[in-house]
Design a protein around this nucleic acid. Structure first.
Length: 491
RNA sequence: CGGGGCGUAGCGCAGCCUGGUAGCGCACUUGAAUGGGGUUCAAGAGGUCCCGCGUUCGAAUCGCGGCGCCCCGACCA
């Protein structure tokens, strides 16, 4: 290990982004590989980050009227295969249970890749009248999709997620629900993870198999690639009709209900790493950081040690009482930790920087004498000496400012790497160079979308909701375009 | 499924070409010193060299077969 410097044990982000990502995930102890190919073990520090975003999203989901439920892991083959487009989309990724109890099963069981078909089948008995609607359910579970190529958090054969499933009496109400789900994701990404997202609609080519349309939130990572942060699907009456669900409406007519589904997964832990991290490792937004302040005692002699410990002991009661009010009005304790390990201060500095802890307080003999401490901000390593007795009082404000700073920094990064182009050559040049988001006119035809993907590696991430009407010509075939769409290489 | 790489101590690797019975760094244990950006010295513990078969007096090393993992692409949250 090199001595006398900052974190050196991870690949440089600018030189080898995938290597950097892997190093950070492994060395910050977020996750490990498992004995089963493509599966991952989420370690305590990584799981704490997941729990934080999970809990935040869960609050949004409950606040908007949904209830948590559980449905089983197994889906009978016949059910999974009921919706034609859905089967076609998922078939290559499904893992099957073919044997149980020492015998081959008469009907294979799919390990759920998602639960639409199973839920539609079950709820047909629950939905008899318009009075049973809307039915607003959410599941926190694991699903399995046998991916050909996996990456920790971003794409694993098994992953944890939330899948909401709702049924409505009218198409309009279902459309509103699709928007509600997407807004839960925007809020969790932007206000909790400090990751700015673009809300938009997926193209026909990119939508969820079996959906009428799919809405998405797309984020930019620090390698300028896009990552889909969450999707919300209008299922129309597709799944309801195949399952044979109908209800008696106010007009005394039997109708199939309109469905929606929406999901958000552990890949967002990876997004948090890739949206904020730097060459020294993780940079965590205070809202999700398992530890928001780490205190590193520094001493030489036993006398120094006890003096420093005394200063820390004097500080701890105030820190334990310190509270931070979050945007939704909830009040949280401030999460701090005193690192009393038998390691050198330099080791601890690097260790906590790798783990992305927002603030570090160094307290040594010099500080004790002056009644102060040195507060170091992870994101820019700026240092500030401040009186120890004032820290607990203004820590909440500092965390708020830090959270905001990360979000603004990410917005600035995205803006700086978003380009408007009007030709395929320009798009290609950008994708071969530094990458980024590209706003370009597109005629709406799948042929052109596919041609661009083949030529440049970029796909249409979203047709943004806030795109203004702008007459133009498609960069592939020159047909008329109504507005610009977002192209990018994606995870 | 195509292309590449790899499998040797907990982790990262060297040794293999040119066969002689296993080594380095980190981590770990003990002791002492050190401590404001990954401390130093000393001592110590730790191994079915991925598996199988073959060649050989002798295989981590050579041959054949298998298994597994990682990276790049196609599929995808």
């Amino acid at each position: 290990m090199a001595k006398g410097g900052f974190v050196t044990s991870i690949a440089r982000q600018s030189e080898d982004f995938p290597g950097w990502y892997n190093d950070v995930v492994r060395k910050a102890e977020l996750a490990d590989y498992s004995p089963v190919r493509g599966c991952m073990i989420i370690r305590p520090y990584g799981y704490a980050i997941w729990e934080s975003m999970r809990d935040e999203l869960d609050r949004h989901i409950k606040r908007t009227g949904h209830q948590n439920v559980y449905f089983p892991l197994f889906v009978p083959r016949s059910l999974l295969e009921k919706e034609a487009e859905h089967v076609e989309g998922f078939d290559p990724q499904v893992a099957w249970v073919t044997h149980a109890g020492g015998e081959e099963l008469a009907e294979w069981l799919a390990i759920r890749p998602t639960s639409e078909t199973l839920i539609a089948e079950v709820v047909k008995d629950w939905i008899q009248s318009y009075r049973d609607l809307p039915l607003l359910m959410n599941l926190w579970n694991n699903v399995v999709r046998w991916e050909l190529r996996t990456r920790l958090f971003l794409r694993t054969s098994e992953f944890l997620w939330q899948e909401a499933h709702t049924f409505h009496a009218s198409e309009q109400e279902a459309a509103d629900e699709v928007a509600t789900g997407l807004e839960c994701y925007r809020a969790t990404s932007e206000d909790w993870l400090a990751i700015p997202v673009i809300k938009g609609r997926k193209t026909e080519n990119e939508k969820f198999p079996g959906a009428v349309y799919t809405h998405t939130v797309e984020a930019m990572m620090r390698d300028r690639k896009a990552l889909q942060a969450g999707t919300s699907h209008m299922l129309g009456t597709n799944f309801a009709k195949v399952a044979g669900i109908d209800f008696l409406d106010r007009d005394n007519a039997r109708k199939p209900p309109y469905g929606t589904s929406w999901g958000f997964s552990t890949r967002m832990v990876g997004a948090t790493v890739m949206a904020h991290g730097d060459d020294s490792g993780l940079v965590l937004p205070p809202n999700v950081a398992p530890i928001q302040l780490v205190i590193v005692p520094i001493f030489r002699t036993e006398d120094d040690r006890s003096a420093v410990e005394q200063a820390i002991a004097g500080l701890e009661p105030a820190l334990k009482k310190a509270r931070r009010e979050l945007p939704d009005g909830r009040v949280e304790e401030i999460r701090f930790h005193v690192d009393r390990r038998e390691e050198t201060p330099g080791f601890k500095f690097n260790d906590w920087e790798l783990r992305g802890v927002p603030f570090r307080l160094e307290i040594g003999p010099r500080d004790v004498a002056a009644g102060q401490g040195v507060l170091v901000k992870r994101v820019d390593r700026s240092k500030e000496s401040l009186p120890l007795d004032s820290l607990a009082g203004d820590l909440a404000g500092r965390l708020d400012a830090y959270q905001d700073e990360l979000f603004q920094r990410a917005v600035g990064f995205r803006e700086a790497n978003t380009h408007r182009v009007d030709s395929l050559d320009e798009l290609k040049a950008l994708m071969e160079g530094e990458g980024g988001f590209v706003l370009a006119p597109w005629c709406g035809r799948t042929e052109c979308e596919v041609a661009i993907a083949e030529e440049t590696g970029a796909t249409i991430r979203a047709i943004p909701f806030d795109a203004e009407d702008e007459k133009g010509v498609c960069i592939v075939d020159g047909r008329p375009s109504e507005r610009r769409v977002v192209f990018a290489r994606a995870y």
